[in-house]
Design a protein around this nucleic acid. Structure first.
Lengths: 213, 213
DNA sequence: TCTATCTTGGAATAGTCGTTCCAAGTTAGG
DNA sequence: CCTAACTTGGAACGACTATTCCAAGATAGA
């Protein structure tokens, strides 16, 4: 029987993902990957193939390990509009403070990069958008059932709105946007989706967002 | 007296801007710039300096020639919410069809690129955001004066929302998003900002957006 | 322990990157 | 026409790019 790998491919891919996430895949060289992972070029190419396949794998890992769990939590949250508000609060906090501050979102960042034309990458981009929108839609449906939402709201359109808003937050956070501004922008949208003007004015569903500022 | 330039620097910068816009500055080499402009490396460096300064110049030109005129038109538009709806209709159309389809927005694209840390570039990014938000705010103020907007709407927050939404549209359009989805997302926001639920349901301010689909 | 089979480190590949340099060409005032 | 001042084409630079290759090392069944 042959030799086995002297490293953990899963841990290596995790480091590659973080490297591409923080710096951007386009401007990160294989030499950087070698240094960050401690692997040799041979092991890297034998395990992951070339850079394009490595980028696709790292992007797929980001969707599975980073995005999807949050999307699933949102879709499973039974609170309605507060669930969406909570999602954005955590998003802004993660994008503007802590370990990954100003890293943005790897999927969002990839939209403008060179690898966006690769089929494997494009597929992840579209899947990310579909899953984000579906999670938003699910939360909006719950909100509608709880009577939190204004009559006549198009849940599909509103879900698309919130997805686009999340991309905007991700994008601007990478340029060092003020978290207060981002949260204010989120609050204005959710207030617009809420049941009536007076209700949201006296007791807004997004009170927690305001408190975060 | 010395020799004069054998080319038009303004026209050359225009071509560079379009090149960076379509392909991305990071993945566009000086060789590509030389080929696209027809200039020699000597003339290029003598006129614009290195690549970083060239990128900053191209980005500044984009803001001045592409973004600002549209922002100014929005800020000067006295229609209120229809002015904002019209802005987004033109945006989606420009991003998804015609000459610059799937190019996105150069400023939006630059948010995720390598040059985003350069002071000159960062300055343009922030200026772009400030001007976009100010234009949105101006249109919202007009809308409030015309009684088109729901009571209690925070114009600053709503302006931030619309700016973030525009970034989302720009980003997703570069990945080939469906223009109908984008317009639906825009419509949902504007309906939420409009005066009352019943009014926007029977006669939405964003009717023209709906018709575009 | 032997050996087939895989992994590993690191050299080497051809190509591209941004940038610099210089001789040759071009201009316009004197 | 002369010449100072500038522009231009194109070669050349070292540093980097992704990728390939191979000898040496490691492994586990026979």
């Amino acid at each position: 029987m042959p030799d086995v790998k002297h490293f953990d491919p899963d841990a290596a891919l995790e480091q590659v993902m973080r490297l591409f996430w923080e710096r951007g895949a386009d401007v990160t060289g294989i030499a950087d990957v070698v240094q960050a992972t401690g692997l040799s070029r041979s092991s890297l190419y034998a395990t992951f193939g070339g850079k394009e396949r490595l980028q696709a794998a790292a992007l797929g890992r980001y969707l599975e390990r980073r995005s999807r769990p949050v999307f699933d939590a949102l879709a499973a949250d039974r609170r309605g509009l507060p669930a969406i508000a909570s999602f954005f609060e955590q998003l802004v906090a993660a994008r503007c403070t802590g370990e990954h501050a100003r890293w943005g979102c790897l999927v969002t960042n990839t939209h403008t990069g060179a690898g966006r034309e690769l089929p494997e990458v494009r597929q992840v981009l579209d899947a990310h958008h579909a899953e984000l929108r579906a999670a938003m839609r699910a939360a909006l449906t719950v909100a509608a059932g709880l009577g939190q939402v204004r009559p006549g709201l198009d849940a599909d359109a509103a879900a698309e709105t919130l997805a686009l808003l999340a991309y905007g937050v991700n994008l601007r956070s990478r340029a060092g946007a003020d978290p207060g501004d981002l949260l204010a922008g989120v609050r204005a949208v959710l207030d617009g989706f809420a049941r009536t003007v007076t209700e949201t004015a006296t007791e807004p569903v997004t009170d927690t967002v305001t408190e975060e500022r």
